[in-house]
Structure formats: structure tokens, C-alpha cells
Amino acid sequence: MGSLGFTPSLIVVGISLVIGLVMVVVFRYTSDQKAIRVAKDHLKAHLLALRLFQDQIPVVLRSYGRILLATGRYLRLAFMPLLFVIVPLTFLIVQLDRYLGLTPLEAGHPFLVSARVADATTLNEASLQLPDGLVTTAPAVHVPAENEIVWRVVASREGDYEVNVQASAQTFSKRVVVGSGLPRLSPVRLRGRFWERLFYSAEAALPKNSLIEAISVQYPARDIAFAGFEWNWIWLFFVLSLAAGFLFKSILGIEI
């Protein structure tokens, strides 16, 4: 992605526009447009009633009740299309998060590699094997309460590395990316834990009989500069896709 010369902000803008358009179209065909229009109109009517009949206390109180009911009805109708989009969109956002959520590590800047083991007694047997270009800068730190061992590592140059964690006779690798651009990053490699793996990891699972439960690399979060602010990409996507949705819904005459 980065090799095409697009900056992260341009990519987020482009994705937001496309997803904004796709989502309103999906919304159009998966929602009851007429019912949504009616529900919104009723909401507006009850709001107007508050003003029109402001001296009629029973009317005002009834209108408040109706506003709550109509809001519930509108939310139910508006969230119905969510059933259709939440799964694909969630997976899409997860995948985008691999590229946009974190930045690669920087050469010369130390970072942490940690391994969590199933049994605390294994901690003393765990070791980290580093490829050429990566070195540890401090002795390993054992955290028995967490079943975890942490190494402080630094890269001397950019590259796509594989570090190996050895425990007893088992050795497991973990990808570490040092560099720039928008590479696909996986902050953790996990054993089992399907759902967590699905949402957080971009690497193959550790074997079921592995003594190691997880190997993590602490990538820094990515901030995207846009409109004079530093944004987490998901917030920027939120704002821009909403704006795109508003734009396209008006152009296409879609009731949201």
C-alpha cells in the first residue's frame, strides 16, 4: 500500500469514501426505507409538539414519552441493516487495522518482545534467539505472576525479521518488522483463542501442544496527521465515512 506512494491519510480518506458509499447503498437495500422515514418524521413531529403545545403539560409529557418510543423504533429500524454489515465490516476494519493501526519499529529504538507460557516453571527454560540485525539490550525479565518473560530488543537496521522463542525443546517464531511505510503488522502470535487471534493476530496459530501461549511484539500506535490534528485512523475513518455517507445519501436520495 505504502509502496504506491499513498500517505496513510490519503488511504484513510479513500477508504472512508468508498466504504461510506458502499454502506449507504447496502443500507438502502437492507433497510425498510419507508418505515425509517416515517419513524424519523414521527420523531420530528413529537419534537415539534413540545414547542407547539408547550403550555399543555399533559401533552408535553406524552410527547416526551413518544419521543423515547419513536427513538427506540428508529434505532431498531436503523440497526437492522447492521446485521448485514457488521460481520464483513468488522473483518474489513480488523484487516485495515493491521496496516493502519500500528507503525513498524524503528531501527535503533528499543522495543519489547514478550512470551507468555502455559506453566510458570517453563519460564526459566525460555530463551530468545535473534537473527542478525537484532540484539537484546538487557537481560530477560521474568514476570511469574503473569507467566511472562520480556526481552528488550533493538534493531540495528530495517528489515523483516523472524525471532525465535525456545522453551524446552520447542521453538516458535514471531515476525518482527523494522522499517517504515504501511506493512501488514501482527502484534501477537497466539495459541488457540480463535476469536482473539481473528481480531488481533495476523500470523498462524501456535501449535496446540505448544508450551508457549503467546509471543508479542510491542509496535507503537500510528497517528495520522489530518486537518491539523493527529488522529487514530479509526476515528478519522469514523468522521470521514460519516461525512461521505451524508454526502452520498443526499445524492442518492437514501433515507438514513
Binding site: I19, M23, V26, S31, L82, I86, V94, L242, F246, I256
Partner: peptide
């Protein structure tokens, strides 16, 4: 997840 907080403009609008 944080991504679930926002599942597209439809939910956002709602």
C-alpha cells in the same frame, strides 16, 4: 473491540 464501536455510517447515523 474498538472497531466495533463503529460499524459503518448506517450505525453511525443511527
Amino acid at each position: 473491540l474498538r472497531s466495533h464501536a463503529y460499524a459503518g455510517p448506517g450505525a453511525g447515523f443511527a
